[in-house]
Computed example of a mutant assay.
Amino acid sequence: MEKIKHIMEQLGLNTSLTLDEIPKIDLYMDQVIQLFENKFGESKRNEDDKVLTKTMINNYAKGKLIFPIQNKKYSKEHLILISLIYQLKGGLSINDIKVTLDEMNKKIIMGDIDLDSFYSSYLNLIAQNVEDFNRDIEERIKAVKDEVKGLQEDESNYLEEFLMISSLVHMSNLYRRVAEKMVDGIMVEKDGKRHR
């Protein structure tokens, strides 16, 4: 399973847009796209994939995933939100992301959140997640190897890879389903407040 270790090295799992990397000045859309492409370009699955496009950003704005921009420029707060969206869209639908970020957008507009501190906490958790993930992968590799013991050599490589892929997808689905239920809880809580 050396192959999976090589894959993990290529993924740049520790790649995050840090507060230090976010310019102090507001950026135009093309500058935002370039910033994200420079930061996350190495983690694309295919070379032709785009990290971020004008259409994506416009859809985030139209869909109210981010609060309105001023003078066609994106603030530090917008960049933090776009970074969160970039990470969340790997596991949640755009509608679920909108529900999740709705309260955050309101807090930003009202000035009711120290967004730098919140984002720092988020980045700390992301770093811890990567450490936990690396340990979990090692355990999963051992478990898969135990399952394919006794198989003929020509069969075991393919079956080992298949079981590893299946296991990773299953874990991903379990985490996504819990996240979706938490989003559903936000919607129920929000609806309950409206009816009072």
Rank of each mutant, 00 (worst) to 15 (best):
K89S: 08
G91W: 01
I137E: 06
L101C: 02
E42N: 02
I66T: 07
M182Q: 13
N58W: 05
Q34L: 13
L81G: 03
A179C: 04
M29K: 11
L35Q: 10
I186G: 00
D116V: 10
S120T: 14
K64F: 03
R194G: 05
R196F: 06
D184Q: 03
K98Y: 01
N95V: 01
E103T: 07
L81Q: 04
N134W: 03
L123A: 04
L123D: 10
D30M: 09
G185W: 00
V148C: 14
K44P: 11
D48T: 14
G111Y: 01
E138W: 06
E160F: 08
E9P: 00
L88Y: 04
R135L: 15
K181E: 14
L151H: 07
N105Y: 01
L11W: 12
L35Y: 11
V99H: 00
I97R: 00
L92D: 05
N95M: 04
H6I: 05
Q128I: 07
S83A: 15
D116I: 09
K181L: 06
Y28G: 09
Y86N: 08
K107A: 07
E47I: 11
L159E: 11
M110Q: 00
V169R: 10
T15G: 04
D102M: 02
D20Q: 11
L35W: 09
D136H: 14
P68A: 10
Y158S: 09
R196Q: 07
K3G: 09
Q31M: 07
E138M: 11
I22G: 13
Y86K: 10
G150A: 13
L81P: 02
D112C: 00
D132Q: 09
L13R: 02
L163M: 15
N134P: 01
F67K: 10
I80Y: 03
M182K: 02
K107C: 03
I4N: 05
L17S: 02
T18Y: 02
V178C: 03
E153T: 10
L11E: 14
S166V: 07
E139I: 14
N173A: 12
N124F: 14
L101E: 00
A143N: 09
D132W: 08
K64L: 08
A61K: 14
R176S: 08
N38T: 02
D49T: 13
E147L: 15
L52C: 06
M171N: 15
L123R: 07
K24T: 15
K107F: 04
S120V: 09
N59A: 03
R135W: 03
N14R: 11
R176C: 03
K181Y: 04
V183R: 00
N46C: 07
R140D: 12
L84R: 04
K3Y: 15
L151D: 08
S43R: 12
F118V: 14
M187W: 00
I57S: 03
I25V: 15
E139S: 13
S172M: 10
E160W: 06
I85C: 10
A61R: 12
L163Y: 15
E9R: 07
L115N: 06
E180R: 01
K44C: 06
K62M: 08
N105P: 01
D146H: 09
K76D: 06
L88A: 15
N46Y: 11
K5T: 12
T100M: 02
R196M: 12
N14S: 14
